[in-house]
């Protein structure tokens, strides 16, 4: 009996340690491989947001796919910010891509809030779909 307990306790500790290690090293959500929770045309998303048909609470922690027209591009060393239809801000990793102002694109990313400074719906960790 004592032997059994002596075996069980290290077993539990081992499982706990493994689980903790797993949690600690849990990878970031892979947005590219996950299905989008919601898809929108940029203008519809902006209008629905402005008229409170959609609120921040509806979008929080959701993966959103948006298509629209590129109205502004801002580049930095680390990332590219692309604005769709003057109202959706998407942050893409700074990879070489051919996004140009005026082109129509579809982007998938994680909703990160509403930027009150420029009145833009903000998406982070975005990927260019097409």
């Amino acid at each position: 009996m004592k032997k059994k307990i002596l075996l069980i306790i290290p077993g539990i500790v081992l499982v706990a340690v493994l689980y903790a290690t797993y949690l600690y090293n849990k990878p970031h959500k892979n947005i590219l491989d996950s299905d989008a929770d919601i898809s929108y045309i940029a203008n519809t998303l902006i209008n629905n947001f402005n008229t409170n048909k959609i609120t921040s609470d509806d979008l929080v922690t959701k993966i959103i796919e948006v298509s629209g027209k590129v109205t502004l591009i801002e580049k930095s060393n680390k990332s590219i910010i692309v604005i769709l239809n003057d109202g959706v801000k998407c942050e893409l990793k700074n990879t070489n891509n051919n996004i140009k102002t005026g082109s129509h694109i579809t982007i998938k990313g994680m909703y990160s809030g509403f930027d009150e400074m420029f009145n833009e719906i903000s998406l982070t960790r975005c990927h260019l779909i097409k």
């Binding site: 970031h28 809030g113 930027d115």
Partner: peptide
Amino acid sequence: IAFNVLLKSFKFEKALME
């Protein structure tokens, strides 16, 4: 000068920490 930083846009090395 004014800043507006969305907290969900912070990236951590570990997803758990984020």
